[in-house]
Design a protein around this nucleic acid. Structure first.
Lengths: 241, 241
DNA sequence: CCCTAAAGGTCTACTGCGGAACCATTGCAG
DNA sequence: CTGCAATGGTTCCGCAGTAGACCTTTAGGG
């Protein structure tokens, strides 16, 4: 402990006594909705769940959710329509995001370390459990989305594929953690250019990862994922160092 | 998306539209302080940081923190003393916790999957970076604490060792994630007996893990950690299945 | 012996947020 | 063409939580 009579203060203190809340309810809600859009869980044209339902699922009041939606509307992400079969819809053209935006500076090594652990672990874990037909279908469909994507949509479909891998582990907590860390990485990636060669290379790696998972080969899945992540990691280190 | 015109609802929805807050500020604060005590970050006799400082670090008001401390006091975990050099101190004899206590039922596979990913990943990550002298010292000291521990203190020292491994990755986010998942595991472990043979076996595995990390052998570290975790995983599955 | 620093203990606004009721708009079914 | 159901839009009230000032206790130093 800090000031303990026993020994020097440790950094475990920092982990346990970190803030209990990341921000206020409004900010957290905006962040989640942005996550849905940026990670490709809600694609242009999609309708978000109705306000009453969404508020319940997010655990915030409808008023707070509506404030979040309003700020997303003002930022150009969504439009709302009233009446039966109305709702809040993701815009077809999304705003090009923020030059390493609003909030505090990100700790690059911290983010990359966490990402490596979570995503290579998820790949291994997904490959070492029996997958049902819908898992197979989902993984293959998301892979195909990447292969057939142009540059403008690639980042979202890439995220969606990685999320599908996390889902295939069957662990909701792990999936949530992967979604969070990908959000952090995505914010960084959006500040650097995406080139055709990277995309082709990325697609090859995706195929190897998915093949290993579908074949139930944990070690190969982990290794393929690790290589894949190393690629973007050195890219980021290069541009942001 | 749910209700999307495009395709079937996916479980990624659940990850992104999960609740933004785990509970109210009071409950979260109690949880954190319990974490500090149960994971051995604050051991009996230790003084917690002063209320004003702790409230700032946890990002809650002093009133809320004090309510949390009061409920820990009533539960027998801590005592507070006024005056200069006063403070809140961890009791020497801690209450034996809750028979799979208050909150909702835990998803065992979910917890174990997340734990496997985080902790084996942390071991690998710690082994693949240069460690300074204080890292070496910390790891060896925590290992020694386990080797010389009797049964009553073993769980706390075990957690503290595993936390030290996470710290050695240098990633604050990963350390926090490991602390959280260990808290979930600890609550489960506290409901089943701890036997001498398990303890001896555990110690052997700990030595192999730490040796691999200190020698900078990522694969060995990961493998040793994975075996170690498999042990308690099947124990838990046995008792709780 | 008293003063001061550092800690816990108390009180008082103020505010963010949740809960719930109610209004307004829209499209489909009858 | 009328009514209903499903949605977004609005309003109000109450409570949990925050911020900050202030009180009380205690140990050590001058």
């Amino acid at each position: 402990m800090t000031g303990s009579r026993r020994e020097a203060p440790s950094t475990a203190d920092a982990a346990v006594f970190r803030p209990v809340r990341a921000g206020n309810a409004f900010e957290e809600t905006v962040e989640r909705l942005l996550q849905a859009i940026r990670l490709g869980v809600a694609v242009p044209g999609d309708r978000l769940p109705a306000e009453r339902e969404l508020a319940t699922r997010l655990g915030v009041s409808r008023v707070t959710l509506r404030e979040a939606i309003r700020s997303l509307h003002e930022a150009g992400y969504v439009e709302s329509r009233r009446g039966r079969y109305g709702g809040t819809f993701v815009n077809d053209v999304l705003p090009t995001p923020h030059p390493l935006s609003d909030r505090g500076p990100v700790d690059l090594p911290d983010t990359l370390t966490l990402r490596h652990v979570l995503e290579s672990g998820a790949a291994e874990s997904a490959a070492s459990r029996p997958l049902d037909q819908s898992d197979h279908h989902n993984l293959r469909a998301r892979l195909q989305d990447c292969l057939t994507s142009d540059i403008t949509e690639y980042r979202r479909r890439d995220s969606r594929l990685h999320l599908a891998i996390a889902e295939a582990t069957g662990s909701a907590s792990l999936t949530a953690a992967v979604a969070d860390v990908r959000m952090r990485v995505t914010e960084l990636l959006d500040t650097i250019p995406l080139l055709e060669p990277n995309l082709a290379h990325s697609n090859e790696q995706h195929e190897r990862i998915i093949t290993a998972i579908l074949n139930g080969n944990p070690d190969a899945a982990r290794k393929a994922m690790a290589e894949h992540l190393d690629g973007t990691a050195s890219l980021l280190r290069g541009f942001l160092a």
